[in-house]
Design a protein around this nucleic acid. Structure first.
Lengths: 151, 151
DNA sequence: CCTTGACCTAAAGTTAGGTTTAGAAATTAC
DNA sequence: GTAATTTCTAAACCTAACTTTAGGTCAAGG
């Protein structure tokens, strides 16, 4: 039980609140990289708790897993990230959050002019600009209101 | 070409920017109810353009299709909705939008204390309260940070 | 009349983000 | 030493919100 043995996946799951299956899935997506013990089981560093917490928070902020992987790649690979490291990559989240808030507030400001009046006139609709990429579930393209091809 | 013949699905698609397949899908979900012409083809009222616009906007606000159906059910069924009708049901959207904005702002306020400092201390994390139901993609439960069972 | 484009249905496929299952091997607990 | 947990992998399944496909029917133009 030396400290250096690392955390098993179940322990990490308990510490983060994530499901074991989710942690394995994140590994498949390149978000976390455990090593293996002699028996082939995954072992995690204590810093990985923080890493997964970051993943969860970033998801709340609307980042996709590939985007989160992007952001995490800015962390130093050769050492355990310091508070300052985390602080730095959180700037990305902050910017994204600011942008989302701005979008929503703009949306709210236009709500009366857009639906509120019942006109739903598309060209002046706040939704005209499909900027918030919290969208696109299904496959294929889908453009938002406004520039309907002709008519 | 009398006005009363209604719009074909392709025309409605062009007017709203939605895909034809999406409109049919919305019908299957009970969001819109066209009538059929002699040949069995769907025909829509002009007011359905507005109805679908509302659907798109409500989706932006994070409502699911069942929720939107709920909201739309408050519209009068016996006549074409007036601007006032739309105004009234948009109150629901407004409330939801306000709530989303509040959540995000609270999130932003806590960002520095949560990730910014690098501590990622879960109990004081703004994400502790999983209130915003813009979540839950996969199936099964997933509780957010904080109350990890033991440890 | 005939061709072309729009429309029809039903079923299967897609994407994101996971979960579930099955069968086997490793660990831990007693 | 053995039983009970955990963990392993691979593959299948799940939901939401659609799209695509396949195989036909309808409608409009010339």
């Amino acid at each position: 039980m030396a400290v250096s043995e690392g955390l098993a996946i179940g322990a990490l799951a308990r510490r983060t609140g994530l499901a074991v299956s989710a942690i394995r899935y994140y590994e498949a997506q390149g978000l976390i990289a455990p090593w293996r013990n002699a028996g082939g089981q995954r072992r995690y560093q204590r810093a990985d708790i923080r890493r997964l917490s970051f993943v969860m928070i970033a998801q709340q902020f609307g980042l996709t897993l590939p985007e989160i992987r992007e952001v995490l790649s800015e962390l130093p690979g050769n050492r355990t990230p310091t508070p300052k490291d985390w602080q730095q990559i959180s700037v990305v989240l902050r910017a994204r959050l600011d942008q989302r808030i701005d979008t929503l507030i703009r949306l709210r400001d236009n709500l009366d002019g857009c639906i509120g009046c019942g006109c739903l006139s598309l060209p002046k609709c706040a939704l005209y600009n499909p900027d918030d990429r919290a969208k696109s579930h299904g496959s294929g393209p889908r453009y938002l209101m406004g520039d309907a091809p002709e008519a």
